[in-house]
Simulated assay, not measured.
Amino acid sequence: MEDKAHYPPVNPVSAGLRGNCPRCGEGRLFSGFLGLRERCSNCGLSYSFADSGDGPAVFVIMIVGFIIVGLVLAVELAYQPPIWLHLVLWLPLTVVLAGGILRPLKGLLIALQYRHNASEGRLEGGPEDT
């Protein structure tokens, strides 16, 4: 990680959800929909530390699944529509919701990773210590 001392603290939640740099809060984090830039255009922070892994996808599955299943059950119990109507309603809504929250969640996890200096775990006495 690079030196944080020269920058005022940035709220990782607001910076991450907006897709801004976790150090300065100004530069853009993403280049495209989910691809990360190499570094911040404002403060020069290298984003090489950033590895959100499958975390954002897991949160999206849980959040969107909870919403969609609740809505499907409510509509089914109230109206009992045919299956084709369920497909027409819930497939597009699932795609829109998942696509809408995936990027902000990825930005949030990367900002929290920066804030807490999170990195891959290492064992003492491993090959990299010799």
Rank of each mutant, 00 (worst) to 15 (best):
C40T: 06
R28I: 06
Y7P: 00
E2F: 09
G32V: 10
S41F: 03
G25L: 05
G44K: 09
A50R: 07
G99Y: 13
A15H: 03
P8W: 04
G100C: 10
L29S: 07
A57S: 13
L45Q: 04
F49P: 09
P104K: 12
G70A: 04
P9H: 04
C21F: 06
G126Y: 06
A57Y: 04
L91S: 08
S46Y: 09
C21G: 04
G121R: 09
F49L: 09
G55L: 11
G25I: 03
A50T: 13
R23C: 09
G27F: 08
E76D: 15
I68G: 05
V58P: 01
P82I: 14
V58S: 00
A78T: 15
C43M: 02
L77E: 14
V75P: 01
C21P: 03
A118G: 00
V58R: 03
P12M: 06
N42E: 13
V60K: 01
P127F: 11
A118N: 03
A98F: 04
R103P: 03
G121K: 05
Y79S: 08
S119M: 10
P8D: 11
R39V: 02
A57F: 01
G107R: 07
R115C: 00
E120F: 01
V75Q: 04
V64S: 02
G19N: 06
C21M: 05
G99L: 10
K106T: 10
N117G: 11
N11D: 15
F33C: 00
I101D: 12
V58K: 07
L93E: 01
N42V: 14
S31Q: 12
